[in-house]
């Protein structure tokens, strides 16, 4: 019997590491490789958007983890084949866009989780364990904003991590 491929992907998950900077907890995605078909799609002019969903939960050893918070970041790259450039759009910061003629720049733009501010330390309790879970929804082509599209596009867990609040 064939099973969905993502069920086997758990062993290949990337890592999420955290750092405490002043009053913030920042998160960094490591060992994550952008799929080759994304690069190909951008090269061939297909818009690509990445929706990152990073959630943090307080670990309860004998019960369901308690959700603490979640941030969602959406990055979109729209290629322009005529001008050989890629327009970079950060949906979280509104309409700020920029053009780049470098594909690598565009690809790096899609993976923003590098010292990315996650949440205020004041929201965490001392000496508690927390689990991080990162899901990614890759959308190739024009984004389908219809209400039912959510039922056919599922984010996949790509990275996990944990930390203990000192």
């Amino acid at each position: 019997m064939l099973l969905p491929a993502h069920l086997f992907a758990a062993a290949n998950l990337a890592k999420l590491t955290t750092t405490s900077e002043q009053e913030l907890i920042t998160v960094t995605l490591k060992e994550f490789t952008i799929p080759e078909d994304v690069r190909l799609a951008l090269q061939e002019g297909t818009p690509v958007s990445f929706t990152w969903s990073v959630s943090i939960e307080q670990v309860n050893p004998y019960w369901i983890n308690e959700p603490i918070g979640e941030i969602i970041v959406t990055r979109e790259v729209i290629p322009n084949l005529i001008s050989k450039s890629w327009m970079l759009i950060d949906s979280a910061t509104g309409s700020i866009t920029r053009n780049t003629s470098s594909l690598n720049t565009a690809l790096n733009f899609l993976t923003p989780l590098n010292n990315f501010p996650l949440l205020d330390r004041a929201l965490l309790s001392e000496s508690e364990h927390y689990a991080l879970n990162c899901k990614l929804l890759i959308f190739k082509g024009e984004r389908d904003e219809s209400w039912w599209s959510a039922y056919f596009h599922f984010a996949k867990t790509v990275a996990q991590g944990s930390f203990q609040q000192p």
């Binding site: 078909d37 190909l40 799609a41 061939e44 297909t46 322009n80 082509g141």
Partner: peptide
């Protein structure tokens, strides 16, 4: 623009 759109569509279909 048409060339770009068609090329994009063609490549999407090819993929």
């Amino acid at each position: 623009k048409n060339i770009e759109d068609n090329y994009r569509s063609y490549r999407e279909l090819e993929r």
